[in-house]
Design a protein around this nucleic acid. Structure first.
Lengths: 193, 193
DNA sequence: AACTGACTAAAAAACATTAACAGTCAAAAA
DNA sequence: TTTTTGACTGTTAATGTTTTTTAGTCAGTT
């Protein structure tokens, strides 16, 4: 059994248990038992429970980034199509990211600030990549030039994060997802010249 | 000292103390002391601590509704101007509504569901009134007809509520308020034909 | 190097006790 | 009759103590 196998088994089991019970209600003993490893083995591969959880959330985030990067790099899409697909697929992927949902509560609970850097990194990544799309649109004449684009993007990311709470924590995504594209369409139209 | 005077004194003191210490950390004994009334007098006028807090939050909400109603009924504004002013002034008024800010946490804490009806009522009121503006815009040809307007408005209200968390709980409003109008402008432009 | 299982200090949970609190109500005051 | 009071009480919250669980450690084994 190679190094990677044990590590991946731990991650896989942790993903399952954290998804189901949340960070605080999942113990390292449980993860070890179900992974059929000694608890010390978990600590050989991960510095702490927090690092393990971050690894699990990072995998979800990387999956999201991968999906969105494909959209951004697709040469067949113009900027409007890209941003629409970005926004829609973003919610689709995040809807299935149970551990990510837990991070949405971070602002309201103590002992969860170790997650802040992950969330900040994702915000920065998103800002950067949305900006790419918008700049592409401006260059191609699809979008009007935008003043103060950086702050507007900050706020727009707040909007997206704010929507995640009713969608994923209050389970409203299923009800509203068929119409989300329509709302984003209005916004994208507002970007046009 | 008339009936209304005592009641108003209680409300005024409660507003101050709840604003400063929050609902859970303000006791009825304290409110009574500072209002120079017996605690039993508070219960003569208000059925419970919860009802007193709701009264205080309602006053903030009524102030908001009053401000926004003036905008909606202003005959000198077209629909675009109305909705822009609505959205901007909405945040201005809510920024000063400390007790309302506390209700934003309701979804994350127990023992606060007595506030739900207030929040639902405000959502419904907002939906109704935003719809009025949009319908006015559609009638006058300022806005394109909107499909599924009701669900889109639901989501838009989620967007506004979602923005309240960084703005008012994370104290980002001062930083971003100068640019909020710009973001709303893009959205309003997207409503145009 | 990777893994184990016994161990331990710290944190969390459970339990017990005390203090604070929301709410009550008969009596007093207006 | 209405409004207000202040003493009272059951419930809840806070505090303190004890027990259990947990994250993390590490010498020994593979």
């Amino acid at each position: 059994m190679s190094l990677d196998d044990t590590r991946n088994i731990i991650i896989k089991v942790a993903d399952r248990l954290f998804s189901r019970f949340g960070f605080h209600k999942t113990s390292m003993d449980e993860i070890a038992k179900i992974a059929r490893k000694a608890k010390g083995s978990l600590y050989y591969h991960f510095a702490s429970k927090e690092e393990l959880f971050k690894e699990v959330v990072s995998k979800e985030i990387n999956k999201l980034k991968h999906t969105l990067s494909n959209i951004i790099e697709d040469p067949d899409l113009d900027a409007s199509e890209k941003i629409k697909k970005y926004l829609v697929d973003r919610m689709v992927v995040l809807n299935d990211s149970a551990n990510y949902h837990e991070t949405l509560r971070a602002d309201f609970f103590e002992h969860f600030d170790f997650i802040d850097s992950l969330r900040t990194d994702l915000d920065n990544w998103e800002k950067e990549n949305l900006k790419k799309i918008i700049l592409q649109g401006i260059e191609n004449g699809e979008f009007a030039p935008v003043k103060e684009m950086d702050v507007l993007l900050d706020m727009f990311i707040m909007v997206l994060k704010g929507l995640e709470i009713p969608f994923f924590l209050q389970e409203k995504y299923d009800k509203y997802s068929p119409y989300f594209e329509g709302l984003m369409g209005i916004l994208i139209k507002g970007l046009a010249p």
